[in-house]
Amino acid sequence: MILTIVVATIAGSEVALPADRIDCVIELGALTPVPRAPAAIAGLATLRSRVLTVIDTSVALGLAPDRTSSGGTGGKAVVIRHGGHDYALCVDAVRDVKQAAGEVEPLSVPVGDGWQRVARGMIATGASHLLLIDPDKLIKMQELEMIT
């Protein structure tokens, strides 16, 4: 099956996200901080009267220093519905939406701890390969982190 992917930049790296999991791409407005939440929870935002839990993807992946639920404005994010709730994953930029050039392949090189935990594999896009991120894994990580 050939996936449609969203090509986005997270923590400076270009990665692919499965388009079928992405509800929409939004420009985040002001965030409501969540005091005492882990650093990766950037806050709450609204989208058409839905409340979004905004996850600072770079922090969640351990690629950026803790910015502690700071509120502030968030930039771009992709919206994912997970377990009946809406999450917004912050991205630096969204480059493209396109058909992948091939199937998902297992990772052939170590990609680092943070990426490893959320990667579904790699995927060909024309000339190059991109890391395919599983957004549900990333959210699940957040859900579990709180419990421990």
């Binding site: 002001a30 969540v34 929870i41 839990t53 959210i139 709180m146």
Partner: peptide, 21 residues
């Protein structure tokens, strides 16, 4: 969302008239 519920201090969210959660 579960991620926020797990913080253990909040029981829900709502929107203010100005659209802010």
């Amino acid at each position: 969302s579960r991620a926020v519920l797990n913080v253990g201090l909040y029981c829900g969210s709502s929107l203010l008239d100005d659209g802010q959660p």
